Amino acid sequence: MIVVKVSYTVEGAYVEKNQENINIFMEDFKKLSGNDFRYNVYLMNDGQTFVHLSHFKNPDIQNKVLNVPSFKEFQKQRDESGLNNSHKLEEWSFLAATTDILNEP
């Protein structure tokens, strides 16, 4: 399983637009079939820092999800909004959960 955390901070004026773009790609993600990935987005208490936490069953599923056109457009607009070097990507190793994530033991 591939687990990725992405965090970034946007300018206050861009928060609402970023949320709109997230809603668009999340609707497209929901249309993808299967139980091969989980994708969650959070807004930190500062009201400007977003955290995306994703779980992918394998690299093929990750590639499929990350190439959804609305997601690519979200990334383009987010990056062009001016992130001031706040973008951070981390890959984690899955160890355990209280619920069944992607049918993993």
Rank of each mutant, 00 (worst) to 15 (best):
L66Q: 12
E90K: 11
E16M: 05
K88S: 10
K31I: 03
A96D: 09
D28S: 13
V68K: 01
N40T: 13
I101G: 02
K5L: 10
F56V: 04
N18F: 02
G34K: 03
V68A: 01
F94P: 08
D79F: 08
E73N: 11
V41S: 09
K31H: 08
Q48H: 10
S81L: 07
D46F: 06
K88R: 12
V4Y: 01
V10D: 00
M26V: 10
K31A: 15
K57S: 12
K31W: 07
A96R: 10
K64G: 03
S70Y: 00
V6N: 11
Q19C: 07
L89Q: 12
E90Y: 07
N84L: 08
D60H: 06
G82I: 03
L32Q: 15
T98Q: 13
K57G: 04
E20T: 11
D100K: 15
T49F: 01
I2S: 01
E73Q: 14
L53K: 04
L83H: 05
N84Q: 13
N23T: 09
L53Q: 09
F29T: 05
M44E: 14
S33Y: 04
V10H: 00
T49N: 01
K31P: 09
N21V: 03
K57E: 13
K17L: 10
N84F: 05
L83Q: 04
G82L: 07
L43K: 13
P69G: 00
I101E: 08
I24W: 02
F25P: 05
R38V: 11
M26P: 04
M44I: 02
H52I: 00
K5H: 05
K31R: 15
S86W: 02
M44K: 15
D28W: 02
K57V: 09
L66F: 05
I24L: 13
G34Q: 05
E11S: 14
N85S: 13
F50E: 00
F56I: 03
I24M: 05
R38D: 10
Y42H: 15
F56E: 02
E27L: 09
P69C: 03
P105Q: 13
F74H: 14
E73A: 13
E11Y: 08
N85Q: 14
Q77S: 07
L89Y: 05
N84I: 04
W92M: 15
F50R: 00
Y14V: 06
K17I: 05
I22A: 09
Y39I: 06
S93M: 11
M26E: 10
N58M: 08
A97D: 14
M44Y: 06
N58L: 07
P69M: 01
V10G: 00
Q62I: 03
T9F: 01
P105D: 14
F50V: 00
F94V: 09
H87L: 15
Y14I: 03
D100L: 14
D100N: 15
V51Q: 05
K76F: 06
G47Y: 04
W92L: 15
S33R: 12
L32G: 04
F37H: 09
V68E: 12
S70C: 02
L32T: 08
F94G: 09
N45K: 12
R38G: 06
V10S: 01
V68T: 15
E91Y: 12
L83I: 07
K30H: 11
N23P: 02
N35L: 07
I22C: 01
S93W: 07
N23Q: 13
V15H: 00
R78Y: 03
Q19M: 13
N85T: 05
L53N: 06
